[in-house]
Design a protein around this nucleic acid. Structure first.
Lengths: 216, 216
DNA sequence: CGCCCCGCATTAACCTATGACATAGGATAC
DNA sequence: GTATCCTATGTCATAGGTTAATGCGGGGCG
């Protein structure tokens, strides 16, 4: 993997920032733009591990065993802050406050990963997609990226499918169910959520009323 | 959740240490024994998030939003080291080395969670079970808990099933496939892995030779 | 301008891995 | 003895995977 100049870095959509298996000497913080963290399998399957929002720290988890455990790619134009990994330790000594908030961030990530695991492991496709969309929406909202119930979603359906361990086709069908129920309209890179509460509720409980008859 | 005395704590198998939804003011380090970290769903399903081995740090991830995101329970007699959460911040200022290794631990956890996500999301039941067993075996081995290819596994099949998002029945059937292939014998709380390399390989690649005909 | 690609969304038909249910057997505890 | 918990295995039902065909918009290029 290439080495970037320390400081601020701007990359275009589609640019790989970290590559699984490589040995990156650098760490990043996302300042603007969005991205994707994923793992590739031998047979070509892909698991999207997390979506990257502004403020996310990139590369720590990845480099545990000396080499990256996953890849990171921009899905919009992104601005990143680049560190050298070697600065990291001195950082801990000199700025314990920053070190603390970093550990804090890692804890939040892990908290989220537990949710993801639970969703993929235990919930239906409908619940899972509802969960993914409402989570994206909530994160975006917290960052002021939502304007009257609408946000930019710089992903394709395959990204969501790979994040949830579902097939593209089934994800598509599930999305159109949510659309027909007026819960989430995602077209042309824009996501509209008229009723977040209901969407989030479906994510947790599944639609009991639809349980007896076929879900779709 | 009850509050424990700061210092060393010994609990019996089956004791809950943290409870999801409660607000624990304490953190733990596992010294001896093993446990289970899990989340419960409204409908009674359970997702096992991780197995706890000696050396694991407990409670950080859980307390992000002010309340626990998952529960922790001992599956053997355990010895724990108990901290007050309030000590945590001063810890960062006074012992940057310890703080660093803590963040390191968190990163390792997250690395693992990515693997778990990938396994549950993308792999077959056979691969998943092979992955779980080989991972447990490798961790145990690293801690010297393996004696001639054998380790104590203080879990029941339902625990593994809940960790992998599989049903108990299907997990059981998959285990007997692995047993019949001489890859993993798990009976009476003891796991024997005659050929870790092959087991791990199945976890990654699935058994291609069996792919054309039904797997079982 | 029209033509051909190509990536993405959509839909339909079919198939299978896995879940749900049922039942039995072994072990342990009282 | 019997109650409880766990493992084991068979049968049947289904959520979701796989494949394939269609449509559609944008970009390069004659």
């Amino acid at each position: 993997m290439q080495r970037f100049k320390v400081g601020e870095l701007v990359v275009d959509a589609g640019t790989p920032i970290l590559m699984e298996g490589s040995n990156s000497p650098q760490l990043f913080t996302a300042l603007h733009g969005m991205g994707l963290r994923y793992k590739l399998l031998a047979d070509g399957k892909r698991q999207v591990v997390n979506m990257i929002f502004p403020g996310d720290f990139i590369g720590l988890q990845a480099g545990v065993m000396g080499e990256m455990g996953h890849s990171v790619e921009a899905t919009t134009k992104m601005t990143l802050c680049v560190f050298d990994r070697s600065e990291f330790w001195s950082f801990f000594k000199e700025r314990p406050d920053r070190a603390f908030s970093l550990t804090w961030l890692a804890a939040i990530e892990e908290h989220f990963m537990g949710d993801a695991l639970t969703t993929i492991g235990q919930r239906t496709a409908l619940q899972a997609v509802a969960w993914a969309l409402s989570r994206l929406f909530i994160r975006a909202d917290a960052l002021g990226m939502v304007t009257n119930g609408t946000m930019k979603l710089p992903y394709i359906q395959q990204d969501i499918a790979d994040a949830l361990g579902l097939s593209l086709v089934h994800t598509n069908k599930t999305l159109s169910v949510l659309r027909s129920r007026q819960l989430a309209h995602w077209t042309d890179g824009t996501l509209r959520v008229p009723d977040l509460a209901t969407l989030a509720e479906i994510a947790m409980l599944d639609d009991l009323s639809a349980r007896k008859r076929p879900i779709m």
